[in-house]
Amino acid sequence: MALKKKSGGGGGANWMDTYGDMVTLLLCFFVLLYSMSTIDSSKWQAIVMSFNPMAAKNMTETPGGEGPSADADEGGVMEAQAEIDEDIEELFQAIQGYIQQSNQQSTITAAMDGGKIYISFGNTVFFSGESSYLRPEAEPVLDAVSEMLGAASESISEVRVLGHTAQGTPGEPNTVQRDRTLSSERATNVVIFIQEKNVIDPVKLISEGIGQWRPVATNDTSEGRAQNRRVEMIISGRDLQMEAEGVTTYYTTSYTTQ
């Protein structure tokens, strides 16, 4: 009886087809990885946003420009914030130097706290009596202040000017309309003077009339009332972290930008 020939199976090389497919896929995978490692920021963000538009909102390019990064460049932000803080400190020192040089320590005071500069101008520096018109003597002071603000304008978030009055008769509130109007007009006229110098973006200039309601001394004496009649200026330095989060914080209010 003749022996049957063993069949070769015809599929002995099938494993090579599978192996070849696998090697091809691996090659494609590594090519893809390589291309992603060298893609620029704009292309990467376009890819990510095609899947999820919100995912690429805070993405930034790495310092070397050789790949995407989902985290902000904290080192760069910190360095820029340090420069802003230094500008505000130098502005404060310049204001203090001006006060001493002009020998106006009794009528102008300045302090700094929490990245903000607080300046208080006595009533006689800018205005006379019940007037809201700037005195001629006020112009050199505001000229000097405007020049200093201009030098630090890029680092300033806001300049808020507040007008204050005194309670004319102890125990008897001022007439509401006159009190609010006078303090508002005084603050507004100071802001107008600075804005017309074109040294800082007008959006950063704010005026407020406080009236008699935030005294710093008693209204029972003429000396105390003289202290309460004043104009205050609050200069806020920029906060880059808050800006990155879309939040702008000022002296009395905060809001989220749209």
Rank of each mutant, 00 (worst) to 15 (best):
L3G: 03
A13G: 02
W15F: 05
M16F: 08
M16V: 13
T24S: 15
F29A: 10
V31I: 14
L32P: 08
S35E: 12
S35Q: 12
S37A: 14
D40L: 09
S41D: 15
S41C: 14
Q45S: 15
Q45T: 13
A46Y: 09
I47T: 11
I47E: 03
I47G: 05
V48N: 09
F51R: 11
F51M: 12
P53D: 15
T60A: 15
E61V: 15
G65N: 08
S69Q: 13
A70E: 07
G75K: 11
V77M: 12
V77W: 09
A80Y: 04
A80H: 09
E86W: 00
Q96P: 00
Q100N: 04
S102A: 15
Q104M: 10
M112S: 09
G115L: 02
K116G: 00
I117V: 04
Y118S: 05
F121I: 00
N123Q: 10
T124A: 10
F126S: 01
F127N: 01
S132D: 11
L134E: 02
L134N: 06
E139W: 01
A144H: 06
V145T: 07
S146H: 03
A152Y: 02
I156R: 06
G163R: 04
P170K: 11
E172D: 06
P173G: 05
P173C: 05
P173R: 02
N174I: 03
D179I: 05
E185D: 13
R186F: 04
R186T: 03
A187S: 13
A187M: 01
V190A: 02
V190T: 03
V190H: 01
F193I: 00
D201W: 04
P202F: 05
L205A: 03
G209T: 02
I210H: 02
Q212Y: 05
W213R: 12
R214A: 13
G224T: 08
G224C: 09
R225T: 12
A226S: 14
Q227D: 10
R229D: 12
V231N: 11
S236R: 13
G237F: 08
D239E: 09
Q241E: 12
T248C: 08
Y250D: 09
Y251M: 03
S254N: 14
